[in-house]
């Protein structure tokens, strides 16, 4: 095979790799959103961040390190919604609206009433639940699909 043909093949190979990268990103985004494994945080109709169970776990570790809570405490696997929103760069909003995988599940609260007791906890299925840790560990949303920050 001549060098010119190999150059063309090389260019095609590059296009295939770049295309595969876009395809993988799109697939992860669509599948994750449909199954609530990836949660978009939306502000002013713009997605400012994505979070998943892995991110929640890392934020939990950071929050616990900051507040010096021991690992043996009963709220392991949970991070406050307030801390998550602060970490993803959410600011200048009045309401928080959290939508569940089941369309009937929607939870809305004023930012000023945001309580550290409202925590996010990762489920076995890789989704994230919202719980009120003080009110008898009441499950507010079983599997979060979207978080909206409204002005």
């Amino acid at each position: 095979m001549k060098i010119d043909k190999r150059i063309v093949l090389g260019l095609i190979f590059i296009v295939v790799i770049v295309g595969s990268a876009f395809l993988l990103e799109h697939t992860v985004k669509v599948q994750g959103s449909n199954s609530a494994r990836i949660i978009p945080v939306i502000q002013n109709n713009e997605t400012i961040a994505f979070v998943d169970a892995g991110v929640i776990e890392q934020l939990r570790e950071q929050e616990h390190a900051m507040r010096e809570v021991s690992e043996g405490s009963d709220n392991t696997g949970e991070v406050s919604l307030e801390f998550v929103l602060g970490s993803v760069g959410g600011f200048d909003y009045r309401y928080i609206e959290v939508k569940g995988l089941d369309d009937s599940e929607t939870w809305r609260l004023e930012q000023s009433k945001l309580d550290p007791a409202i925590v996010l906890s990762s489920n076995m299925s890789g989704t994230v639940a919202m719980i009120n840790s003080e009110d008898g560990r009441q499950i507010l949303i079983k599997a979060i699909k979207e978080i909206h920050l409204i002005k």
Partner: peptide
């Protein structure tokens, strides 16, 4: 290394273009 898939996959298309 068990880095969350969100960190790895989001923006992968753009990253592949800049690497190229």
């Amino acid at each position: 290394l068990n880095i969350p898939m969100v960190f790895l996959a989001m923006g992968l298309g753009f990253t592949s273009i800049t690497h190229t």
